[in-house]
Design a protein around this nucleic acid. Structure first.
Length: 828
RNA sequence: GCCGGGAUGGCGGAACUGGUAGACGCACGGGACUUAAAAUCCCGAGAGCAUUGCGCUCGUGCGGGUUCGAUUCCCGCUCCCGGUACCA
């Protein structure tokens, strides 16, 4: 007799056994013939507590990793800590303890929680990004980028968050507010460090095509689309307008050079030099520019914002007609996109139209619809069409005109074809303490000098106490001062630290040789493991982390750390973005008070129940609604499987009947159909909810089965064993325990994934659904090799079907083998 | 506005390539066991109509279409979710 299922005991036992076996470790042994598979989950920020989002993420990853191991792969499934960042500083201020202490304590806490879940990580590869052995390579890389001119310092208008006391990258500004604290960001002109991601815009865009894959692999179209939009490539023409009484030019970018002859005014951003020049001695204009600079960038405000402008008094000279065109300042022109100036064609752009109407500016139509008329005073015509009022270009189509106008401008040195990206260089410096120091020394004579390799890492002092204002590094005399590596004179260290997205941009590659002291990564290890076969994490990183990591991977490749053949051009082959965990319809959050503590669930039901529920309740990419009752349901399922063991207790009864033989055959069909289904879920889209449902069905079949004689016992045992083995990826402790109690030769986690016995899938008899006019009217059972005539005859002799055929003429018969028979009739 | 995804019972969700709609689970109802309850097991269940039994009609957001047959394909909408934008 088996005692009842005690999760805690079972889980402790198997976690010890697995640790002793070392079965979760990826093997770098050269003689290991197994193919490699790299399964990666997004590493957590060590906030101190695991939340349900983590649990979901890591259970998904663990299911994949365990399945692949059972398939005979040598699996790399690592974990670590994204350990630098602002919350540590905020906690440090609150608790008056250095952030390092807080961070390492949290790591210890969370490591325990992950281990309690029984996740099959290779703990020997654990990394923490706040460790100098990690960030030294990031610093090294940065100095290489400086040498190549890919990292640079520049004064620019940047996003500043006051509460966070730091600048932010464009990607970290969400609807005009800080991604961390939701405070509206302020535009400031500051000297900051950038990395030239724009140099890689074209490759980052082009390689997205290779990530697109329709059969459930690759990346979700959604994420690809978001990145495409973010990079924002547009093709157009740069046009150089002259300025009256000046040698200068006013350059603009347009995607509609075909409308060039319709320009009636120019509009420049408030921050444009020309606007500033015009404002000198003009108090009214100065006040307007001031007003523009204070505009909130919040979406809601932007939408309702009135389009405003003022005449600068300057005139531009049309590059073709030579005509005078007034230059205005407009609050809707952005300094950060293109050249900060636009040509305005009110006849063919809705926004320009509204602006022209408001300020009484000319509207000149230069494009006519291909057919029909257009009242240009009523609305802008924004489609392509045929040119008019455009001198030599009259009669051309928009498409032809774009080409010939651009050619004409190029011949006259007034413009050229140009590609414009929305993407801007990555701002990587932060005015924060708890981050990797930027490895630069500022010398009065030599300027910004990279720290030489033999002086790396530039270690962050870990004993400083942040106070909430400026970074304590600015007052740390022992850190601040250094000799210039070039001339040896006393100099000052760079006091900013890196954006923490720098660390998470290359951790996937570091895991392949995490303890490497000689290089950032080992090319051989990269060749063995990279790129990541399956990456799993939250969709919130669609643009931020996933764009930076793609970029950084290419930077590493181009730094010669590995070749395309070794590490690929992309870091993540397949991406699964899991949905959020909800409670009562909204995202779990402390402020809403609707959080569910994973520890409480584990304590009450065990890790396996928590794992099973999170995988079963919804498909991975969809939102998961937390449901306490359904958690109990998951637990009940495990208890039911446990009780199946009891059915093997009795002695086999020797009773050989035909019914028994049929039941055995039916059970074996169930077993192997289930193996097929569950394997399919792993190979196509990770629909674990469906896979688990199939396993529940098998469990129900086993429960209904009465193992009567030897053959019955064997079939039952086969089924229960297959069930246990297939449960490994989802509830590994439980499955191992069942396997052991069944007397399996091998520990279940080390078993091979079960093979489908195709002969078991062959049925002697098949059930056909019979339809009349496409409506189900009955079922017939036939020998498996019966043809259409047999099927029709059987249908006609079935009472409940025959009544639909009475007085009817059969027009057509359709047989879908193994599925259905449809009879089309009409009245005689 | 644009891009992406979605709409199926009381709920979460299934349905291969056009072939039995609602698997599996939750909640619910009935029964067994029990002095009783919990636990467990068995049965039922889309809606409506009919009912002694057999049964019939409707039904996958809405309106059309293709087809022997449509949750699935095509055309036209509605609504919801996510992303993004004065992008020139």
């Amino acid at each position: 007799m088996n005692e009842y299922y005690q999760a805690q005991q079972v889980e402790d036992k198997w976690q010890r056994i697995w640790a002793d076996l070392g079965c979760d470790q990826a093997s770098d042994a050269p003689d290991d013939a197994r193919p490699g598979y790299y399964c990666l989950v997004m590493f957590p920020y060590p906030s101190g507590n695991l939340h349900m989002g983590h649990v979901r993420n890591y259970c998904l990853g663990d299911a994949v990793a365990r399945y692949k191991r059972m398939q005979g792969f040598n699996v790399l499934h690592p974990i670590g800590w994204d350990a630098f960042g602002l919350p540590a500083e905020n906690a440090a201020i609150k608790h008056k303890r250095p952030p390092a202490e807080w961070t390492y304590a949290n790591i210890n806490q969370m490591r325990g929680q992950l281990k309690r879940l029984g996740l099959s990580y290779d703990w020997s590869r654990e990394i923490a990004t706040c460790h100098p052995d990690y960030y030294r390579w990031e610093q090294w890389m940065f100095t290489k980028l400086m040498e190549k001119g890919l990292a640079y310092q520049a004064e620019a208008e940047v996003n500043w968050c006051d509460p966070c006391h730091t600048v932010l990258a464009n990607e970290q500004v969400v609807e005009g507010t800080c991604w961390r604290c939701d405070t509206p960001v302020i535009k400031k002109n500051l000297k900051q460090w950038f990395i030239r991601i724009t140099d890689y815009a074209e490759e980052l865009l082009a390689d997205l095509d290779g990530l697109s894959c329709s059969d459930g692999g690759g990346w979700p179209e959604k994420v690809i689309g978001m990145q495409r939009n973010w990079i924002g490539k547009s093709k157009g023409t740069e046009v150089s307008f002259g300025l009256e009484n000046s040698g200068e030019t006013l350059d603009i970018f347009t995607t509609r050079p075909d409308t060039l002859m319709g320009v009636t005014y120019m509009a420049v951003a408030a921050a444009h030099p020309l606007a500033k020049k015009a404002a000198e001695g003009n108090s009214e204009l100065t006040a307007f520019l001031d007003e523009c600079s204070k505009i909130s960038t919040k979406e809601a405000d932007v939408e309702t914002m009135e389009k405003k402008g003022m005449d600068t008094g300057f005139y531009a000279i049309h590059p073709i007609s030579g005509g005078k065109i007034p230059v205005w300042v407009a609050n809707f022109v952005l300094m950060g996109y293109g050249t900060g100036a636009v040509m305005s064609v009110p006849a063919h752009d809705q926004r320009d139209f509204e602006f022209a109407k408001k300020y009484g500016l000319n509207i000149k139509q230069v494009i006519a619809p291909v057919d029909g008329d257009w009242d240009i005073e009523a609305a802008a015509f924004t489609e392509a069409g045929i040119l008019l009022n455009s001198a030599n270009f009259d009669g051309l189509s928009s498409k032809e005109a774009k080409k010939s106008i651009t050619e004409y401008l190029a011949e006259n040195g007034k413009g050229s074809e140009r590609v414009q990206y929305r993407l801007r260089d990555w701002l990587v410096s932060r005015q924060r303490y708890w981050g990797a120091p930027i490895p630069v020394i500022h010398c009065d004579d030599c300027g910004a000098v990279p720290v030489p390799e033999n002086q790396l890492p530039v270690e962050l002092p870990t004993d400083l106490q942040p106070t909430g204002g400026a970074s304590p590094l600015t007052e740390c005399e022992s850190f601040k001062h250094a000799d210039c590596p070039k001339c040896g004179k006393p100099a000052i260290r760079e006091l900013d630290t890196f954006d923490t997205f720098m660390e998470s941009s290359w951790y996937m590659n570091r895991y392949t040789s995490p303890r490497n002291q000689d290089a950032m990564v080992d090319a051989a290890a990269i060749a063995k493991w990279a790129p990541v076969d399956q990456y799993i994490g939250g969709v919130e990183h669609a643009v931020l982390h996933l764009l930076y990591a793609r970029f950084y991977h290419k930077l590493m490749r181009d730094a010669g750390l590995f070749t395309s053949e070794q590490g690929g051009d992309e870091p993540f082959k397949n991406l699964l973005t899991q949905g959020m965990v909800l409670k009562d319809g909204s995202k779990m959050s402390k402020s809403k008070g609707n959080t569910v503590d994973p520890n409480a669930i584990i304590e009450r039901f065990g890790a396996d129940t928590a794992r099973l529920f999170t995988l079963f309740a919804a498909p991975p990419e969809k939102e998961l609604e937390w449901n306490d009752a359904a958690v109990e349901g998951a637990h009940r399922f495990l208890k039911r499987v446990w009780r199946l063991l009891e059915k093997l207790d009795g002695e086999p009864v020797d009773r050989d009947t035909e019914e028994d033989a049929a039941a055995v055959k039916a059970l074996r069909l169930d077993i192997h159909a289930t193996i097929k289904k569950v394997s399919h879920a792993f190979e196509h889209g990770f629909a674990f909810n469906v896979a688990i449902a199939a396993l529940m069905e098998l469990s129900n079949s086993l429960q209904a089965f009465e193992p009567q004689k030897e053959a019955g016992h064997a079939a039952f045992r086969e089924g229960l064993q297959a069930l246990a083995v297939m449960l490994i990826p989802f509830v590994p402790h439980f499955a191992c325990e069942i396997g052991e109690r069944l007397g399996m030769n091998n520990i279940a986690v080390l078993s091979d994934w079960p093979q489908v016995d195709e002969t078991a899938l062959v049925q002697d008899e098949i059930t056909l659904v019979v339809q009349i006019q496409g409506k189900k009217r009955g079922e017939i059972t036939l020998p498996k090799d019966a043809g259409q005539d047999d099927a029709l005859a059987a249908a006609q002799s079935d009472v409940s079907i025959a009544k639909w055929l009475r007085d009817m003429q059969i027009v057509k018969v359709i047989l879908v083998p193994g599925r259905l028979l449809n009879i089309v009739v009409r009245p005689q």
